[in-house]
Simulated assay, not measured.
Amino acid sequence: MALTGALCAVLPFVGSIMFSVPAAGDSGVASVPGWRIIAAGATFGPVLFCHSPFGEMESATGRNWRRVQLGVLALNATACSLLFFLTSLMVFGGPMALLVLRGIIGWMGTALLAARLLGWRAAWVGPLALLPIMIFWGTEGPQQYAWWEFTARPIDDPAAWVTAAGLLALGAGAHLVDRWRWRAAVTFLRRRTIRLSRRPPSAP
């Protein structure tokens, strides 16, 4: 919450500033508003909060601790997202605040997925690794963006909303699966991949 609060305090001063960064589009440059960068940083704070130095011992206590941990994560993530959205609403107004909300939804999903794959302390890897990819390859020209660039597409663009919601569902779903089922799924996919790689090629 402290990280999100600090970024909310910075948002009125930096959120509307346009930064010129390299892009793969025709112009070679993308103009990125500050709020897109700040929103990516505001979403992994609640996930980092779930890290504990006693993670292995706590996970051994069973599903009750897991439910408490997920409940705290959901409550903290909702509170931080709501705080950032309300701040955006006061600073930018309704239409832009909806664009910020869509960005928060997608970034939160990437933070949750990174935390599940790499550990709680690595939740920042998801948003901060995807952000430059989206800016560089997602910008196709002046005010033209790829369909999956959920932070820059128009507010009424359905594909951008589906992308953001899909990332959130993927990240949340990864945490709802306990570690035994997670390991079973990973083992199944690994064995399936090995089996397919050993299959002899079909005759022409």
Rank of each mutant, 00 (worst) to 15 (best):
M1V: 03
M1I: 04
L3D: 09
A6V: 13
A6P: 14
L7N: 09
A9S: 12
V10I: 01
L11E: 10
F13V: 06
F13Y: 15
G15N: 06
S16M: 10
I17P: 02
F19D: 08
F19G: 04
S20P: 08
P22D: 11
P22E: 12
A23S: 13
A23W: 02
A24I: 04
V32T: 13
G34P: 12
R36V: 12
I37L: 15
A39P: 03
A40T: 01
V47A: 03
V47W: 02
V47K: 02
L48Q: 09
H51M: 06
F54T: 08
A60D: 14
W65Q: 14
R66V: 03
R67I: 12
L70Q: 11
L73N: 10
T78L: 13
A79F: 12
L83A: 15
L83G: 14
T87G: 07
L89N: 00
L89S: 01
V91Q: 12
V91W: 11
F92G: 01
F92H: 13
M96V: 08
M96G: 01
I104N: 07
T110V: 15
A111L: 02
A111G: 07
A111Q: 08
L112P: 10
L113E: 06
L113Y: 00
L113G: 04
A115D: 11
G119A: 07
G119F: 05
G119D: 13
R121M: 06
A122W: 06
A123N: 04
A123H: 07
W124K: 03
G126C: 03
P132W: 01
G138V: 00
T139Y: 09
T139W: 09
G141Q: 07
P142H: 05
W147R: 09
W148R: 03
I155T: 13
I155D: 15
I155L: 15
A160V: 03
W161Y: 10
V162K: 00
G166W: 06
L168E: 11
A169E: 08
G171C: 01
D178F: 01
R179Q: 14
R179F: 02
W182R: 03
R183D: 15
V186H: 12
L189R: 12
R198K: 13
R198G: 08
P201M: 09
S202C: 10
S202E: 15
A203N: 11
P204F: 02
